[in-house]
Amino acid sequence: MEERIREIILKHSDRDAKLLGILHDIQDEFGYIPREAIDIVAEWLSISPGEVYDTASFYSFFRFKKAKHVIRVCNGIVCNLKGSEEIIRAIKERYGIKEGGVSEDGLFALEIVECIGRCDGPPAMLVDDDSYGNLTPQRALEILRGYEE
């Protein structure tokens, strides 16, 4: 792990804006931000691990619990008016996840998020970086099945 983290960090060495980019790459690699990574990143940036955590814990996208895929269901005003709560209920039931939790098999994390800018196709969700709009509960579950492997 340490080796891989160092490689990620090195990729950012000639950039001015470092920390967010490094954390993104680490989360892409491991599915979350491991504690060990915080220490290594801190050392490399000559800041304390606490300072890295201060930043990372601010952003709702960064996660400290591992999950293979992250479902982010939009519950912004437009999606909410157009039925996002049904989508959320369906996903919770199907995978037995709570809001902010991870399914038992570690496959999905469920997050309820604010507007994701897909108000022209509500309700919408993101699975990892892919966005899906005009959802119905059935369609949402179908999409997620595709991530089950």
């Binding site: 967010l20 980019g21 201060d54 930043t55 601010f58 996208f61 998020v113």
Partner: peptide
């Protein structure tokens, strides 16, 4: 630079903090 899930970072000074690697 890619944000990480924070509405307030759209505010110009918060956005700059974020580029600098700090909380927004």
């Amino acid at each position: 630079v890619i944000g990480a899930g924070s509405y307030v970072c759209g505010e110009e000074t918060a956005l700059m903090e974020s580029i600098e690697g700090k909380r927004g």
